[in-house]
């Protein structure tokens, strides 16, 4: 391996006193002293959230307003800080728009004191039901308040467009499909 020795230019006397550099530095800071401010005054001014931002994990509904989560518990499994806790439950057969999904979460809790916003839950979700969305500030007065329950998760998540309609297709097949 070739070694290239870079000749360093010896410093002049003035450079060795550092005084010109200090003066230059003072000039730079003086410029900034009068330069326009670059910060946002947070609570009043909100930052623009870039796409793909990983904020608070939320549960989303499909365009039909049906909950997408089927409580497969993969997010609970993958969650590194074990922030997610799901109680699975069966969807009773008397709910015409959801019965074909069979399974849904009875309870879905995300402990935001544990959550590290890693986004693995979103990545692992086979139903695209959990998303880390724009919400980035979570606060509360008690530990209990910092646990997002299912209702709150859906309230935060809202409805996202969805191109798959997996369960709609399933229902359509059940009604008109290849049944014998």
């Amino acid at each position: 391996m070739a070694v290239i020795t870079v000749e360093r230019k010896p410093l002049t006397f003035l450079e060795r006193t550092y005084l010109p550099q200090i003066a230059g530095g003072l000039k730079t800071t003086l410029k900034h002293l009068v330069a326009p401010k670059k910060t946002l005054e947070y609570p009043e001014q909100r930052p623009a959230i870039p796409t793909g931002y990983r904020g608070v994990p939320t549960l989303v509904m499909d365009p039909n307003g049906r909950e997408k989560c089927v409580s497969c518990q993969l997010c609970e499994f993958v969650c590194p800080p074990k922030a997610i806790r799901i109680t699975p439950g069966e969807i009773p057969a008397d709910q015409p728009d959801r019965a074909h999904v069979e399974k849904g979460p009875k309870a879905f809790d995300i402990d935001m004191l544990r959550c590290i916003y890693c986004g693995l839950c979103q990545e692992v979700c086979p139903e695209e039901a959990i998303f880390l969305q724009n919400q980035f500030s979570m606060s509360g007065y008690s530990r209990e308040e910092m646990v997002n329950h299912k209702d709150r998760l859906y309230e935060l998540g809202g409805t996202l467009p969805d191109a798959h309609f997996k369960w709609d297709k399933k229902k359509a097949a059940e009604e008109h499909g290849n049944a014998h």
Binding site: T29, H32, L33, A35, K37, K38, T39, E41
Partner: peptide, 13 residues
């Protein structure tokens, strides 16, 4: 305040 201004911040306000 001076620290903030030099750092392009508004500082305590």
């Amino acid at each position: 305040k001076v620290a903030a201004w030099i750092q392009d911040r508004p500082g305590p306000n």
